[in-house]
Design a protein around this nucleic acid. Structure first.
Lengths: 342, 342
DNA sequence: GACTGTGGCGCAAACGTGTGCGCACCGGAA
DNA sequence: TTCCGGTGCGCACACGTTTGCGCCACAGTC
């Protein structure tokens, strides 16, 4: 045995080019291009067949980089999300990928991990990669938007209730959704309703909090205790414990995300409290996790697939080039066990 | 008001090129390139400063497509997974993105949705996009591999226990992990241990099943009932119901994924059975969901981050070009409530 | 038979980079 | 002064495409 065996370096990537195909088929490179792209030019059926055969024989695959360079479009869009491990965002990412794929676009995924600097890097990186657009679903501050505008990259903000000026946004009416949830709890006779909210300074958290406040105010009820945390299970767990430790414990809690609600559920279980018996719980997002928790979670569903599709279409689909607009999708209260309905 | 307002077409994407920078700085385009890439050539500090300033002023950003065309590398890797909504795979995707990003590579995400034709399309698509490598975490059949070899794209199989010949694989010893889990249940005195397994014909399911079989056999125990389903909550739920309906109901269940376990949990709850009191449960994956279920799930953890990093490094990192190998990472039994430990 | 119209195809110029090669200049040594 | 080595920079080509333009051959018309 030879111990000096050269590692299987994956063969010099000798790319089969259009020129090879042309030579093999006995035509010019232009014809190959016409055949491949069904260009504006007609090509005789016989010639076309020859070219197709040559392509098959040689295993020719057009070079996307060259195409992108020539066309000025990479047929790729970018996605910036905080954390693909978070079920809500992974659901979103999947939906965006589907929508993009349906239009022939690939999806470059980037996670910001709640790190502003990283989010910035990601956006710059995507811009440098000539993506045709970027979907931002993140805690976004002005500087980022400025960057994008400067780079002249089409972009759409996802899951934000549109307030930003010149950029298209796609989302739900967070305030209204939250309000519906809280009113549902009020309808069950609760008068001390706590709130588990996010810590972001973006406009996500605010609107949901506003919905909670207004529902209570309109019902003539006092505001219950508030706990803020990250939109995660761990964060929710901590928030749950804080709510339980608060002065007079709420009999119901509205959580601003399913993840937080699941953390809260754990805190309640540990405290030996039953849900909804001792404390009722309603949350936000409508992720699948809420359907398989114990008890199952009543939650405000966001139509993620529709939102993703709208975002992608605004970027590279039929709605491209239309003036910036704010699309607001309806939420839907999914009533399950945790709210205390019979 | 003028109702004919022209929509804000995102400005003709007039790209600032290297030539512009060169002209602005009063140097040649080559120098700009040297400055940007820190090329092999030296450039005088004064010139460099001028160029940097020009770059800043003009907001120059190198065109990734042109670079990719020239270098024959897109600084991009592809990921093929069944479903990014599935927590295990979303965790994996996040880890792969991190590892790739650390090496300066972007990640193109594609979902196969358990659809073989789509998986095939995704792979072809990635190949056409000149990705520098592909991480495959999927139910993979031979034809796909052949495609990859044909396209000469470096690839690594993730989460497969390596049996494939010429391709690098990264994963865990599924059989051993499963065996540990089942032995743990046996240690608790269970003698009728059921199995919730996947339906895939790949090598994923088999090894775990094998571990279950061997643990039982070595302990002189009979094989309990088996239910097969997709690696999802819904699938697990159905499998759970089937296991409950089986001849003589098991007192413990080993589930081949956390998702299935969570579905089973729901089935058990609905049946009014307590876990682990009436039925113990141990699963596989170690996703965060298993930590926040009720009761919390004892599960066999896969070191996903390590695996992702190893896969990416084998593709485009330090380990690139090494001969195909099969890296097997250790699993770890995370003992929580569902197994019945005190 | 000459002219014209048309369908089918080839030529060659970009797209924005990276980089080998060569040229100009400059300081020092003879 | 002449020669020489070295440093710093410019020229120009190639990467694989797309596509406007022009050429050729052929059929139809007078």
């Amino acid at each position: 045995m030879d111990t000096m065996t050269i590692p299987a370096v994956p063969a010099p990537r000798t790319q089969v080019t259009r020129k090879d195909v042309a030579r093999y088929a006995g035509v010019s490179t232009a014809v190959v291009s016409y055949v491949v792209n069904g260009g504006p030019k007609k090509v005789a059926p016989a010639t076309e067949a020859k070219v197709q055969e040559a392509i098959r024989q040689l295993g020719y695959r057009p070079n996307a980089a060259a195409r992108a360079l020539k066309l000025g479009s990479s047929e790729t869009i970018g996605l910036v999300i905080p954390d693909n491990s978070n079920p809500f965002f992974s659901m979103l990412a999947h939906a965006v990928e589907d929508a993009a794929g349906a239009l022939g676009y690939a999806l470059v995924l980037t996670n910001s991990d709640g790190n502003l600097a990283k989010e910035r890097r990601n956006i710059r990186n995507l811009a440098a990669r000539q993506v045709d657009g970027v979907v931002l679903a993140s805690v976004l501050f002005e500087p980022e938007l400025a960057d994008l505008e400067a780079a002249e990259i089409p972009s759409v903000l996802l899951s934000h209730s549109g307030s930003s000026a010149g950029v298209t946004t796609v989302g739900v009416d967070l305030a209204k959704g939250a309000r519906t949830a809280v009113e549902h709890l009020i309808g069950h006779g609760h008068t001390n309703i706590g709130l588990a909210m996010g810590t972001t300074t973006g406009n996500e958290a605010d609107a949901r909090e506003e919905g909670w406040v207004r529902a209570l105010r309109d019902a003539g009820l006092p505001e219950g205790p508030i706990a803020r945390s990250a939109f995660t299970r761990v964060g929710g767990y901590a928030a749950g414990r804080r709510l339980l430790a608060s002065g007079h414990r709420p009999t119901a809690i509205f959580a601003s995300s399913d993840m937080q609600a699941i953390g809260i559920l754990r805190a309640l279980h540990e405290a030996g409290l039953s849900v909804p018996g001792d404390i009722a719980l309603v949350s936000f997002d409508g992720s699948e996790d809420a359907e398989y928790s114990w008890p199952t979670l009543t939650t405000v569903e966001q139509p993620v697939r529709d939102m993703a599709e709208a975002a992608v279409r605004a970027l590279v689909g039929a709605d491209r080039g239309e003036p910036a607009q704010h699309r607001v999708f309806p939420t839907k209260l999914l009533v399950r066990q945790s709210c205390g309905c019979p």
